[in-house]
Amino acid sequence: MKLLLYVFMQLVLVLLLAPLVDGIIKKIKAFSQKRKGPPLTQMYFDLYKLMKKDTVVSETASWVFRTAPYITFISTLLAFMFFPATVILHSISFQGDIILAIYLLGIGRFFMVLAGLDTGSTFGGMGSSREVMIAALIEPALIVVLITLGLIAGSTSIYDIMLLNLQGNSFILNPYSILLFAAIFLILLAETARIPVDDPSTHLELTMIHEAMLLEYSGKHLALMELASVIKQLLFITILANFFLPTGWLGSQATPMLSFLLALITYFFKVVCIALLIAIAEISTVKLRFFSVPNLAAISFALAFLGFMQFIILGR
């Protein structure tokens, strides 16, 4: 029963917050360009509109193309279930392992890439081929950061890492954590198709990666794919917010309801901070040449490794 409540709350939270965060990033970018930008709620309307539209499926496509949006969406959602927004929410949740969560995202990627190859279009193949390269380069840095965080907490359980961070002894105050934070921030930009790696707002065939794989999708399939990608973005933002930033509002003093609300507000505030950071990163950089992405991955890995070295030498 408690589990159901947890799942329900987490679901409502992610479905409400994920498109909103994307809207916030867009809004900040628009401000910097002296534009008004779309309203914060634009993505909800878009998704609703897409779901009410007819779908077009390529005659070349097999069942993989039709099921991929569902598998990608469900596995991303499932991965997010392991990242409780607040500690209070966790008390009624299930065990979550950080490696499992990352590999669940891997399933989503596997099917998205396959779907890109399924229509026989050149663009799909192009996007798929680029996506697997980025994934192969980013994965070591990501796992190294997460294992190091696990090492600090003594377990690879997401809850343990989160709890240690939120219990006053916040990670971000430590030198090694700044390195790890920087590493995972670069990974976030690569994993969520943000500007130095991929540009989410263009459909230029020479540069697109994520959008190229989705080019043949329409209607409800496209809606699911878009939703999955913003959920993935929120997931990485949550990793940064809950694993590094302080103040979790553990909620021992106030009444459960009040502390829960306060915890949610702090979580939301932290998410907005990271969104601001992403927007700033996007505004202040240009898209890298595709074959410079390995350098980005190498920097991220180097930062992660230095963070780890600093941790084992200096201790917690």
Binding site: K52, K53, T55, E59, E216, G219, K220
Partner: peptide, 12 residues
């Protein structure tokens, strides 16, 4: 939500 939609098979 999409109960009134159809699926169309078309070329890539």
């Amino acid at each position: 939500i999409g109960r009134n939609t159809k699926e169309r098979i078309f070329e890539t």
